[in-house]
Design a protein around this nucleic acid. Structure first.
Length: 811
DNA sequence: TAGTACTCGATTTTT
DNA sequence: TCGAGTACTA
């Protein structure tokens, strides 16, 4: 794409070391605030940038890179910028190429996993992988573990495959191979055995899972001095986005790349690592993120400079006041206070509803109101803690005819038909990929049953070979069917030699019988469409990613050794253009990946968008987690109830509670202009009505920034209802989206059914003969089955059967 | 081998 | 409640 000339005059030849210093001020640096400017122009050396929400973090990151290049402090090849998501990486590349007339392809900008993939492709021999190794996604990994359990008679009751995959991923993220795992009990012993078997299986099949990408490339750097030295020398500037989300392994990986290099017999500090992050937005502890990496980074890298970006360009101050006040309740923060030059704006609106249904109705009414005031629907977001909450809201939006889009769910490359197609393609590349083999050997059905496959797997295990190779040992009808399948794959492989990607996929779709199968399926129309879309995706992968363009086969060492001490003489000069993302080059042979292999890698590393209708102007529904990094004019946060937000599973310890608070902090800071926070007295969850107390987070917000739309703590009889909200018996109901009317006019504390006869209410203080005084947190069930969750200061929180427990109401 | 009945689980998720 | 995944039957 032609670079946009946003910074006319800024363009000198880059990388040649001739660009003047930033004095006269470069246009790049205009419009930066002092903090941002300081961050962008940091002198070489390690630094931490604490970037608050909406403080222009991405801008700082990209401008920093542009500035480094423009002033000749770095060449494109010397830059390594790493992110967590493909989206973030893409945005960085897009902004950079808009800033500078430069080929950004020479830079290593990508996700941790994407960059690891590059490293492993380049040095696959050193790490013992075939050049065509493929990547298992989470689904593949699970089915691989299941298969392994079946084969080795692992008791799936005691060791659920899902847990085993967590265990394996957890070990890898801690940098542990099976032999490194401390075994204290037989349980762990067994898990480690499975881990070991799983590793062997992956190795045999030539596949790696996500965690393996990280671990294997970490080991590559750790164990190969020449390789490590090369990359350390090459990447003079390392920039890490969302540093608070890094796990142990990612941090160790960074250390390998940034580590000090011996020069003239002494350790010399090298290059610079800029870590950008926000400890207050760390919400991924559950998947291994370690905020502590920020402190470790400062200590271990001897960070001299920490810059805080606290000026927020997103929200009005009422919203920021809420965010600041809330997060101040967390301990051990690095400390940061968002400020804005915008005025207070509107107060943050707070709503209490009797039921989740009423909450959803209220939201929809407000949304319709906003839309009438010309707020684009895509600028309205409804955030919630857990996915289950979206249902009521969806049904109400549907009834009201308001277009909406739900984030999450199946992504394009995760769809069953796409996975099937990819499995065929993978078998073309690597017939020993047993996971793919099993996926499609009998899909579409070709008379190969479970029994047959069991026999085949036994045979393969006995011979220590892949399923593909074991087919020849099978006899009879089953053997014939299997042979036919193998022949199909082999013929397809032959027949697609020399074809382009589009041709290969098209031929595969026909020959495999997938098209035929879905054409005969009355539900198959969508799936056929998706398969068509797969061809398009491949096409645009080839053109947009520029696959096959400027692929540079690098000169080699005479021995074919991967790297030497002298990068420049080996064609590894950082100024040379390097392979584009799809063109990972084998450092031994100079070979690039085949288009098909590259596309398969792309599919595994980037699962694609979820769902279609992305273009429509629709209200955005998503979990708080999914909202990170986004912003909207108007934001609704629903379900602020104890047990839901903060979630009950996270309430038991301080760390969990603090993460919930950070989650709320993230949610609040998504809003630019208007923020609504709401909770409901009751909520239908898993078919049961739960009675919840208002979230403690309400008490942590500054009263003066809030506007209570419903009287605080009021009984609902007092509440003058919005007549529209109360009486919308929607004519378009039906299709299961009925309004089970929960009118505001009635005192609906127990909204459905009669009041339970125990006389308890959430919030009441009760007395128990054994536990003493306690506060009612929640009530569930009715009649004899009614239970109450009660917090006793001295005995903790307990669930008591109201039919049994002797309780008296104190207040 | 496909279709149906039953069990189980149920925050958050990118790569 | 509801959905996915598994086990059982025709």
């Amino acid at each position: 794409m032609p670079p946009q000339d946003l910074f006319a005059g800024a363009s000198a030849p880059f990388g040649a070391g001739a660009a003047p210093a930033a004095d006269p001020p470069s246009p790049l640096l205009q419009h930066l605030n002092p903090e941002q400017l300081a961050a962008v122009t940091l002198p070489a050396g390690h630094a931490l940038i604490l970037a608050g929400a909406g403080s222009g973090k991405t801008r700082v990151l990209t401008t920093r890179i542009a500035w480094l290049l423009q002033t000749g402090q770095a060449s494109p090849g010397g830059i390594l910028a790493v992110t967590f998501t493909n989206k973030a990486a893409k945005e960085m590349v897009a902004r950079l190429s808009a800033m500078l007339p430069i080929n950004v392809r020479g830079m290593w900008i990508g996700t941790f996993h994407g960059l690891c993939n590059r490293l492993l492709r380049a040095h696959h021999k050193l790490v013992g992988l075939p050049s065509t190794f493929q990547i298992l996604d989470t689904q593949d990994q699970l089915s691989a573990v299941k298969r392994l359990c079946k084969q080795h008679g692992v008791d799936e009751e005691r060791f659920p495959p899902k847990q085993l995959t967590w265990f394996i991923a957890g070990c890898k993220e801690e940098g542990m191979r099976p032999q490194d795992v401390p075994v204290r009990d037989p349980e762990t012993q067994k898990k480690v055995e499975v881990y070991q078997l799983y590793e062997q299986q992956c190795q045999r099949e030539g596949v790696v899972d996500f965690a393996e990408l990280m671990l294997r490339s970490y080991e590559l750097l750790r164990d190969n001095d020449a390789v490590r030295a090369h990359y350390q020398r090459r990447f003079s500037h390392i920039l890490v986005d969302e540093f608070q989300d890094t796990n142990r392994l990612q941090y160790a990986w960074l250390k390998q790349l940034a580590g000090d290099v011996e020069e003239g017999g002494r350790l010399a500090p090298r290059g610079s690592v800029i870590a950008v992050g926000d400890d207050d937005q760390s919400i991924y502890a559950f998947r291994g993120a370690r905020v502590g990496n920020m402190q470790d980074f400062m200590r271990e890298f001897g960070v001299q400079r920490t810059i805080k970006l606290e000026e927020n360009y997103r929200s009005f101050s009422n919203i920021l006041d809420c965010a600041n006040a809330l997060i101040s309740h967390n301990q051990g923060r690095l400390g940061k206070n968002l400020r804005t030059q915008q005025g207070p704006g509107e107060p943050v609106r707070v709503q209490e509803s009797p039921t989740d249904l009423a909450e959803a109705q209220w939201m929809v009414e407000e949304i319709k109101h906003l839309v009438r005031e010309d707020v684009p629907r895509r600028e309205i977001a409804v955030l919630y803690r857990s996915n289950a909450q979206s249902r009521v809201i969806e049904s109400q939006l549907f009834n009201a005819g308001v277009p909406y889009r739900v984030y999450g769910g199946l992504r394009f490359f995760e769809r069953a038909e796409i996975k099937h197609a990819l499995a065929y393609l993978r078998l073309l590349e690597n017939p020993h990929d047993d996971t793919s083999f099993l996926r499609v050997v009998n899909f579409p059905p070709r008379g190969i049953g479970a029994r047959t496959l069991e026999q085949l797997q036994d045979a393969a295990r006995g011979a220590g070979c892949s399923l593909h190779d074991a087919v020849s040992t099978m006899t009879g009808r089953a053997g014939a069917n299997l042979s036919a399948f193998v022949a199909l794959i082999d013929v397809l492989r032959e027949g697609t030699q020399g074809q382009n990607l589009r041709g290969i996929i098209g031929q595969m779709l026909q020959a495999s019988g997938l098209v035929e199968h879905y054409r005969n399926d009355k539900e198959g129309a969508d799936r056929l469409e998706n398969l068509d879309e797969l061809v398009n995706a491949a096409e645009s992968f080839v053109t947009q990613e520029g696959f096959g363009r400027d692929a540079v086969a690098l000169p080699l060492d005479e021995q074919g050794a991967p790297l030497t001490q002298s990068p420049a003489s080996q064609g590894l000069d950082p100024n040379l253009p390097l392979a584009a993302p799809g063109e990972m080059i084998d450092q031994d042979t100079g070979e690039t990946l085949s288009p098909l292999a590259a596309f398969l890698t792309h599919a595994a590393l980037e699962a694609g968008d979820n769902q279609a209708q992305a273009g429509q102007d629709a209200v955005q529904l998503m979990t708080v987690h999914a909202s990170k990094g986004l912003e909207f004019d108007c934001v609704f946060i629903g379900g602020l109830e104890e047990g839901l937000f903060p979630h009950e599973n996270a309430m038991s310890d301080a760390a969990g509670l603090e993460e919930e608070r950070r989650l709320m902090y993230v949610a609040i800071t998504r809003a630019r202009k208007r923020l609504y926070i709401s909770h409901s007295q009751t909520r239908l969850l898993h078919g049961q009505t739960r009675y919840n107390v208002r979230s403690r987070f309400f008490d942590e917000l500054p009263e003066e920034a809030l506007k209570w739309l419903t009287p605080r703590n009021a009984g609902f009889g007092l509440f003058a209802p919005d007549p529209i909200a109360a009486h919308r018996g929607n004519a378009r109901a039906g299709r299961g989206f009925d309004m089970k009317s929960a009118s505001f006019a009635n005192p609906p504390v127990p909204p459905r059914k009669a009041a339970p006869g125990h006389g308890l209410r959430v919030g009441l203080t009760v007395f128990h003969t054994k536990f003493g005084e306690g506060k009612v947190l929640a009530i569930e069930g009715a009649g004899d089955d009614a239970r109450a969750q009660i917090h006793f200061p001295r005995h903790g929180t307990k669930w008591l059967a109201l039919g049994v427990a002797k309780l008296t109401v104190v207040e």
